[in-house]
Amino acid sequence: MTTSYKSTNTTVLHEGFKIQGKWNKKNYEIQRLLGEGTSGKVYLVNYNQNVFAMKIGLDEISLQSEINVIKKINKKLEPDKKIFIDSDDFELNGKIYSFYIMKYIQGLDAKLFLNSNGQQWFHLVGLNILNQLQKLHQMNFIFGDLKIENVIVSEFGKVTLIDYGGVTPKGRSIKQFTEIYDRGYWINGTRKADEAYDIFSFAILCLILTGALSISNLTSEKRSGSYLLKRAKTNPHCKRMIPFLEKALNGTFSSTRCAREEWKKLMYGNGFENSNSIELPWLKPALASSIFVLVVTVYFSFIY
C-alpha cells in the first residue's frame, strides 16, 4: 500500500568495483548503472563471463519481499527461462547492503520502443503485455505496478515486465503502485489485487502510449473513469481499441484471458483500416538492409 517515493541515496558504484557476497561468496564486478527507482539502484554486472542485472535495495524488508516473489515465480519457469540467480549482502563503509542478481533484459521501455520503431507496433506490444500478465495471473499473482518504465520491449516487440516490487498475491492489498496507473486514484475501484486491477493499469498504459492521456496536466477534478474514456475517444490511435478500453477501465472483463481475446479480435478485426494514413518507416531501412545482405552474400560467394 505504498505509492512510489523518490530515494535520496546518491552513492553510485563505479565501473570495475568488485563485490563479493557475504554468504554465498560469489564475485561480481560492476559495469555500469542501468537505472534507479524508488526502491534502489540496478547495475549491469559481470559474473562468470556473463552479464546480469544487480538490484541493490534501500530497504531490506522491501527487497526481501521482492526476492521472495521472484523466487516463487522462478520455480514455475522452464530451466532456460529462469530470471533469479542469487541474493546476498555486501559491506561498504561499515554499512550492509542487500542485493539480488537477475537476468539482464536488453531493450527499450515501451514508450521509447514505439518512438523509435513506430506506432504500428502498438497493437503487438499491447498483446504481448497482456500475454505476460496472463502468465503471471495464472500463478495467482497480480503485477500491481504496471507502467511504461516497467515494460521492456526487445526485438520484434518481445515484452518482459521488470520490477517485481508491486507483485502481490491475489486477494491482498496491492503492495506498490504508481498513482496515475492506479484504479483507486481514478475513483474507479479498490486497491485489492485482482486481475482487473492490472487490466485497468494496462488501459492507462495504452492511453499514455498513444498520447491520449498526458501525465503533465492532471488535476483532481478530472479524476474519473468517464474522463479517461473521453480522452480515449478523441484519440485516433485508440479508436479501434475503444470497446476494449471501455471494459478495461470499467472493470467488466471477467478475466485477463477474456481481455486478451478481445484485444486480439480488435487487433486483427480490420487490418486495412486507416491503411493510407499508416506510414511504414521500417520499410525503407528493411529494404536497404536486405539489399545489403544480398550484396554481401554475392560478394562472399565470389571469394570462396
Binding site: 554468504w23 554465498n24 531490506e60
Partner: peptide, 16 residues
Amino acid sequence: LEDLHPNQREKVVDVI
C-alpha cells in the same frame, strides 16, 4: 534481519 542467512530471512519476511 541482516544477521540472518538469506534463506531464513525469506521466511521471516513472509511472516512479516
